[in-house]
Amino acid sequence: MTTVTAPRADATNRGGGKVASDRARAENRLGQRLVAPAIVLMLIVTAFPMLRALWLSVFNYSLAAPDDREVVWAQNYLTALSDPLFWKTTVITVAYMVVTVAIELVIGFVFAMVMHRLVFARGIVRTSILIPYGIITVVSGFTWQFAFSSTNGFVNGWIPGIDDTFNWFGDTTPAVIAICISEIWKTTPFMSLLLLAGLAQVSEDMIEAAKVDGATWWQRLWKVVLPNMRAAIMVAVLFRALDAYRIFDNIFVMTNGAEDTASISFLTYRQTIEQLQLGMGSALSVLLFLSVLLIAWLIIKLFRVDLAQARQEG
């Protein structure tokens, strides 16, 4: 049914080791040449603009008044960091991240378990789980926005105890719930597929052995399965958490930032693209970048995520 990846041919063992250092040098050169285009492309669109953002962030620079551009040094950063709106959006962004990732982890794990043990209807299940994965986030946003709409949606009619005219986008909490649901719906499949990969790495023998020892299903789950797929879970959490921290599309489509639903990405977008404030917007860009780094570092340190292990590199 499922198998662990076959042991791979170890690339380094080819060709007889230390014999030819010339050959090693040539290999080194070839390797670097082959990865060079990818490196350059990735840097053009990330490192270079990031440096430029760093440069622009010391200016008070509005595109609508380019002649008034002036150097303000760290003023933009100070303004942003002392602004309640910045912290409000940061808090709400972290809330989006924690809530969606936690719920996705649970639902995604259930889905992964089902898919892992599935013997029938595999094609159908796989196909349907890939549809939310592949669907455009904007489409997901619209779909759920209309579903929650009091005039044309169905959610109010389906949930008992909710008035037919209840306006989900009229207050922060329900609006955040609606946004989270769209986000969770769209990204749970990704989470469950990563977890499925992890489940496949758990040795069946160990589970059988535990069974023989009389462990219940619940005990096997907590004592055998989960510890053995720890790396996969952590990688899934890391990927999804950083993805969720960048939440933008759903907010743009569903509330356009109304009712305090704006995330830090949305705030940055509004400064740079809508208000044309390249200076302040760049400062926010830098802060956003730093906060993503911080979160990545925190997750990797706190949960001791081992990416190499997750890739079965040992």
Binding site: P49, Y245, S265, L278, F289
Partner: peptide, 16 residues
């Protein structure tokens, strides 16, 4: 790069 906050790039990218 897979984890890069895309929104932080659009300002400078637009400018470039």
């Amino acid at each position: 790069i897979a984890m890069f906050p895309v929104v932080s790039l659009v300002g400078p990218l637009f400018d470039m």
